[in-house]
Amino acid sequence: MAESPLIRCRGLGRRLRSGDQELVVLDEVDLDIAAGEFVAILGPSGSGKSTLLGLLAGIDRPTSGEVHLDGQALSELDEDGLARLRRGRVGFVFQNFQLIENLDARENVLLPLELAGRKDARVRADQMLDRVGLAARGHHYPSQLSGGEQQRVALARAFAPRPALLLADEPTGNLDRATGAKVIELMLELRRAAGTTLVLVTHDAELAALADRRLHLVDGRLVDETGTRS
């Protein structure tokens, strides 16, 4: 019997209201992602890539269809249940880093570990900061770090609780090419070490080429690299 996928989406749709008009962001998306897989999602701006990412983690609600994460139907969970599901099991890396401004780098990394109730939270946070090369910058606040450094802290935060799933939303979008490359290299290295499933949203075909599978969002519909609907 085939192993059940970590993520399973069926008939997933998301519509947004814009004034009097209804905008179809995602339409009838079916998608399976296996545990440990690295999937890249490509598409032009506004094609619904980030929305899809949000729906996969249950931080946004679909207008139709269903997402199963690790066998759990997300529609069956309320906000508290979704929060508990994400806790320590889903990591995020955002385009604009999204570090919490009033926490220093170390505290940002500590946060998901504390939420997951990890007793070794402090040790693990220090290890992760060391792992991303920022052991000496733990007491710096986000505003005192460069973009690349902030994204490395974000990587440390995302991987610290050893999540089963990492969702990365254009992680190099706000970085110069060289810095971006280093960040990607680090992210993939950490992923390989932890065996994390990675869903990466990107514009960058070169970066997407590193993925096990590439999917394209066109007009809210998902097509695989062969051009057929997935």
Partner: peptide, 16 residues
């Protein structure tokens, strides 16, 4: 709002 949204992403419940 932004920080709260991130905390919610990381698994904090509204009551927390």
């Amino acid at each position: 709002q932004r920080g709260i949204a991130v905390m919610r992403c990381l698994g904090m419940r509204p009551i927390e």
